[in-house]
Design a protein around this nucleic acid. Structure first.
Lengths: 249, 249
DNA sequence: GGTTGAAGTTGACGCAGCGTAAACGCCTAC
DNA sequence: GTAGGCGTTTACGCTGCGTCAACTTCAACC
């Protein structure tokens, strides 16, 4: 018994295009090729096709299928590996669904998109490399442990204080105050204390505080966070911090 | 404030390639293009980029993102649609995982791959169109309801009887018996009764039984199932059924 | 002033698994 | 003779970039 490409395709519940594809990649060759290139398939081919499609329904890739089917690899091993992938994918999907749900809830609750802009802007993990490079691995890990130890609310509170300070800096800047004016120095002191909390005990030196200020303009992540309160705020904050470092530290 | 492509890329946690891609598809244009084609991005672009990436993390496609961001479509609507897709996908994954698990269990239990070959070959749902075409919608639905009402074990038992019958046909064929020999007629009678069970009461007429026989060779799904017991078995069964229809029905 | 290096640019291919034309050959039925 | 119907090969499309490749620009260094 042998059948045309249409016939086995229907028989196995697939399409002729798929069969030609399998032929092209060497996964399933026709048992005979007739005049004009017409493909014919026999029972063995049909059996093989059925196994292929069975594995495909389980989600295996064509490469994995050919390995498994041609015995280069144990079928159970291939399936086990595949199962792990599927489970990881499902977990990932679950997390994503949760994110979408909370995002939707916030949106419907009136909150604008990107509620974590400030938090993101300062998220420790995203500065990991720079922090380590500038202040050492110890400093990073200590700060990171502290940050992780906080509750969600504590974190938000910490970031809210920062937002307030940034807003005050912006107001001072708009008012035309100099970076070393007294009012600005007072704001900068609050900022310094805020930083010190994040540094967990080891208070910034003059150099590190001024360096941090420069980072605020050099690094677009920080610059954007400050400039969101008004153009030029980041540069203003930097100057204020440098002035503060020179006079007070 | 404006930054080079590298800078915002790092700032937003993505790559310059991605930004060029977004530019190419019109999703995020640089705020300014300098001499030599160099792209520069300002705060507005950064904000837009952050929204884009946020939605990307939620799994939205770039097309959906641009629609949502440019206000052509409500963001919540886009997210809700997307959420449904994600949930469907998760369910599909769950079913697939279950299939892989049972397949693995069977394999490890010593069962070969494709234990349902016979079952598949006769699965009512896959013949839906032909059955309806040949014997009417009523016949199909009645048979289908009956089939679905069976337990897993009942179905297997039903199919096992068929496998036995097919094996007996194959043996008779190998033994060189004629399709209208008495022994073969006895087997065919068992086959007739088996079919009648599946037809639920309305016993096949001479025409329909002979027609069914012809289908066994015309349709590769059936032909393969029979020929698996030996080359030419399907044709032999067909002849036996036609002979039986002529003499006994 | 030439070299080097870092970062920018524009193509263009690759991936996974086929769907979907497009253009053409062959066989059968009317 | 021609209209269908099924077969063939060739090749683009889809998604979201990663990854060369080849070339330009700009600042720094000898």
């Amino acid at each position: 018994m042998e059948w045309s490409i249409r016939e086995i395709a229907r028989s196995a519940g697939t399409t002729s295009r798929t069969l030609r594809h399998y032929d092209a990649i060497g996964l399933l060759r026709p048992s005979r090729v007739g005049h004009g290139g017409t493909r014919y398939y026999d029972e063995r081919a049909l059996l093989r096709l059925q196994r292929i499609l069975l594995l495909r329904e389980l989600g295996l890739g064509l490469a994995a299928i050919s390995e498994a089917i041609d015995g280069q690899r144990d079928e159970t091993a291939a399936l086990r590996t595949h199962l792990e992938l599927l489970e990881q994918e499902r977990e990932r999907l679950g997390r994503q669904i949760e994110s979408v749900r909370t995002t939707l809830a916030k949106l419907e609750g009136g909150e604008p998109l990107m509620p974590d802009e400030v938090l993101d802007g300062f998220d420790h993990t995203r500065h990991k490399d720079e922090v380590i490079e500038r202040w050492g691995r110890d400093a990073y890990e200590k700060g990171d442990r502290w940050w992780r130890s906080l509750s969600e609310d504590d974190r938000k509170e910490f970031m809210r204080r920062q937002t307030d300070i940034a807003a005050d800096f912006a107001r001072a800047h708009r008012a035309g105050l100099a970076p070393d004016a007294d009012e600005v120095r007072a704001i900068t002191r609050r900022h310094y204390e805020w930083v010190a909390v994040g540094w967990q005990g080891r208070r910034p030196t003059a150099e590190s505080f001024a360096g941090l200020g420069r980072m605020y303009t050099d690094d677009p992540r920080f610059a954007a966070t400050y400039d969101r309160h008004g153009e030029g705020t980041a540069a203003f904050v930097r100057d204020a911090m440098i002035a503060y470092a020179e006079r007070e530290l």
